[in-house]
């Protein structure tokens, strides 16, 4: 019986060790793995450190999408009061379009230029990323899905 208990204690200790290791790893990974969400106005008001990863969300400005010489794409993300220029060298999502909601994640190169390595757009006609809806609502420029 004593042996049984000892074994159980051993197992529990092992489980605890693993949990502690995972907690430490989680804490450590959170430092790099987390991205904050900001709107263009927030960035202009209080620019994050250059090189720190975060997400920016808003609408793609009308007539702002251009293909650059190196094959990457440039466009502006706006929340109708400020705008940030975004450069992106990946493949734009299929539902990416001007005047549509978009979220880009990456780092700030200088105060007005954002280098994105991922761009999310709407997945279907009615869907918009939640952060974006909230942020657009705050600024009063949100137009809900059209009731069909």
């Amino acid at each position: 019986m004593l042996n049984r208990k000892r074994k159980r204690v051993k197992l529990i200790l092992l489980g605890l060790t693993l949990l502690i290791v995972s907690a430490v790893l989680i804490g450590y990974a959170m430092k790099d793995g987390i991205e904050f969400f900001k709107s263009p106005s927030e960035i202009v008001r209080d620019p994050p450190a250059f090189g720190k990863r975060f997400r920016i969300g808003g609408l793609v400005s009308f007539n702002s999408v251009k293909v650059l010489n190196d094959g990457s794409v440039s466009f502006q993300i706006t929340d109708n009061s400020s705008a940030i220029e975004v450069h992106f060298s990946g493949v734009l999502p299929d539902l990416f379009a001007e005047n549509q909601g978009v979220i880009a994640s990456g780092t700030l190169k200088n105060e007005n230029l954002f280098f994105a390595d991922e761009v999310l757009a709407k997945h279907d006609e009615n869907y918009m990323p939640k952060e974006l809806v909230d942020s657009l609502k705050e600024r009063g420029v949100y137009v809900g899905p059209i009731e069909k």
Binding site: E35, S105, D134
Partner: peptide, 14 residues
Amino acid sequence: NEKISVGAPFFELA
């Protein structure tokens, strides 16, 4: 009340 997202680097590391 802060909006964040947890990306691939977190999962890869942890």
